[in-house]
Design a protein around this nucleic acid. Structure first.
Lengths: 228, 228
DNA sequence: CATTGTGTTGACCGATCGGTCAGTATGGCT
DNA sequence: AGCCATACTGACCGATCGGTCAACACAATG
């Protein structure tokens, strides 16, 4: 009878689902939950509408599945820091990682942004629970850094929001950025320039003591992270 | 025959239109252009749906009218700066003004954000024209500041984007901020704390020379702008 | 009084919405 | 061969979409 499973091992099913998820991510990220239509998603995926519902169950199930996938991508990269960590490298990594994540998953990032704009109806629990604790724990460590004289006595919550907003801006407002720069998309050089700028301003602005080997103002740092 | 006019002088018409615009701004800002429905707008305004179309013509006309109104609000406050201006006061005013604007017109700001997220279908000309020139002219002045040694040699475009993103964050991501802070809305104290933080980090981070009377780290600046 | 322009709205239009379902195709098992 | 679970989809459902229109209310003008 082969009983259970038969779901996991089918490679064709996974490929179809991946196609649907990619198409849905595009549409939801542009038009939000209510503005997206299953017909448009189906057309973009090259499948009949009924097929979308066969695999995903409902519009809402598809949507929350995309949200969860994006949250998972986030958490995979969220580093562990301690009071003994070096603030300069932690903040620097934080900035570069966030920037790279936005470039790697532009649709997912916009999907998240649209959800927040709509008042976070599906993410309220996550924001007031998991994410809130994440912020609180990071804030506590940063406050210890300040007490140890490693950085200025700034409010860590505002600092975290600053890094989030300034990095996310380049994915969620890509239409604005492109329009103003007169370019279709950001180049690798742009991204290197942006991350150097943000590192410079934020670290210096918080009075973070630089480790000895840190390069000066405008140049690439050597590269734990690459924009290629 | 009283010929033309008869449109401007009617106070009742203006009041009705203001009601509709306010209701529409709420709905569009939450759900974007496609996600918003005229029926919901009408219900929120306390009017029959046909009445909305009588006054506004079409969904699209209503939407672009809201966009234009928001652009106008922006331009009213956009200050004029010269190479001789003091970078510290200009940047400081810029930050505080942006923060206040977001608090004064939260729905309008979110409306703008949703439009950009959707790929700016109605704002492409504005972004690549008017706004682009605004950025270019400001950037040129900032580069002169850098040449004069008044601030670090940072890329002015990234600096402008940094101020935009970090201030807008608190209106467009208000649902996230509230969820994390565990508060329904930001208080006047929050806003004072945030703007002090942003001033501190961004000015210091750009190596902006402070004018003599500038107060130190955490305190209010005396207040050209108030959050009451 | 009659006429006219503006405001107002219920009823209706074809199109599209998310979702259901019956029916068919298909591939692996006995 | 027969059987059965899974994959797939055209046709259809009631609800809602943006938009039109004819009918009506009403105040001002002649």
């Amino acid at each position: 009878m082969t009983v259970i499973s038969a779901i996991q091992e089918n490679p064709s099913r996974e490929r179809v689902e991946a196609t649907i998820l990619a198409a849905a991510e595009e549409v939801f990220s542009q038009h939000g939950y209510r503005g997206a239509s299953l017909q448009v998603i189906a057309d973009r995926a090259g499948l009949p509408k009924a097929n979308i519902l066969y695999y995903m169950g409902s519009k809402q199930a598809l949507y929350v599945r995309l949200l969860n996938r994006m949250m998972r991508r986030w958490n995979e990269v969220l580093e562990d820091i301690t009071p003994d960590s070096d603030p300069a490298t932690v903040l620097s990594d934080f900035i570069r990682t966030k920037l790279v994540l936005g470039q790697r998953y532009p649709e997912g990032s916009k999907l998240f942004a649209a959800e927040i704009l709509a008042g976070a109806p599906f993410l309220n629990d996550y924001l007031a629970g998991e994410l809130r604790e994440w912020v609180a724990s990071r804030a506590m460590i940063m406050r210890q850094w300040s007490a140890q004289g490693k950085m200025d006595a700034v409010d860590p919550r505002w600092l975290i929001f600053l890094i989030w907003s300034s990095t996310q801006h380049y994915t969620e407002y890509s239409a604005q950025v492109s329009g103003i720069l007169g370019r279709d998309a950001l180049t690798a050089d742009d991204l290197e320039s942006i991350s150097s700028f943000l590192e410079h301003v934020i670290l210096k602005g918080c009075g973070v003591a630089l480790p000895a080997h840190q390069p000066s103002v405008g140049r690439p740092s050597g590269g734990e992270v690459s924009f290629e």
